[in-house]
Simulated scan of single mutants.
Amino acid sequence: MISADAIRGYIDLMVLSILTSHPSYAYEIAKTITEVSGGEYTIKQTTLYSAVKRLEGAGLVRPTEGTSETGKPRTYYHLTPQGRTHLADKLTEWESTKALVDRFVEGVH
Rank of each mutant, 00 (worst) to 15 (best):
R8H: 14
R8G: 08
G9M: 08
Y10W: 03
Y10R: 04
D12T: 06
D12L: 00
M14S: 07
M14F: 04
M14P: 06
M14E: 10
V15E: 07
L16N: 01
I18Q: 05
I18F: 05
I18H: 01
L19Y: 13
L19F: 09
T20P: 09
T20N: 04
S21F: 10
S21A: 14
S21M: 13
S21V: 07
H22M: 11
P23Q: 03
S24Q: 10
Y25H: 12
Y25C: 00
A26R: 01
A26C: 09
Y27R: 10
Y27M: 11
E28T: 15
E28W: 07
I29W: 06
A30F: 12
T32V: 11
T32L: 01
I33F: 11
T34H: 11
T34E: 15
V36S: 09
V36T: 14
V36M: 06
V36K: 01
S37M: 09
S37L: 03
E40G: 12
E40F: 08
Y41V: 13
Y41F: 14
T42Y: 11
T42K: 06
T47N: 15
L48E: 06
Y49N: 06
Y49I: 14
Y49A: 00
S50Q: 09
A51C: 15
A51N: 11
R54T: 15
L55F: 12
E56G: 08
E56C: 03
G57Y: 00
G57M: 04
A58H: 10
G59M: 03
G59D: 07
G59I: 03
L60S: 10
L60R: 05
V61A: 02
V61L: 03
R62N: 15
P63A: 11
P63D: 03
P63K: 02
T64N: 08
E65H: 06
G66K: 08
T67F: 05
T67D: 05
S68P: 12
S68F: 09
E69F: 10
G71F: 08
P73I: 06
R74F: 09
T75Q: 09
Y76C: 00
Y76F: 13
Y77V: 02
H78F: 09
H78L: 04
L79E: 05
T80P: 11
P81F: 12
P81Q: 07
Q82P: 04
Q82L: 10
Q82V: 01
Q82A: 15
G83I: 14
G83D: 02
H86N: 10
H86D: 12
L87I: 08
L87W: 07
L87E: 11
A88K: 11
D89Q: 09
D89G: 08
D89Y: 09
K90D: 06
E93G: 04
W94G: 01
W94I: 00
E95W: 14
K98Q: 09
K98P: 00
K98I: 04
A99L: 04
A99R: 07
L100Y: 12
D102S: 02
D102N: 09
D102E: 13
V105R: 05
G107Y: 09
V108H: 05
V108N: 11
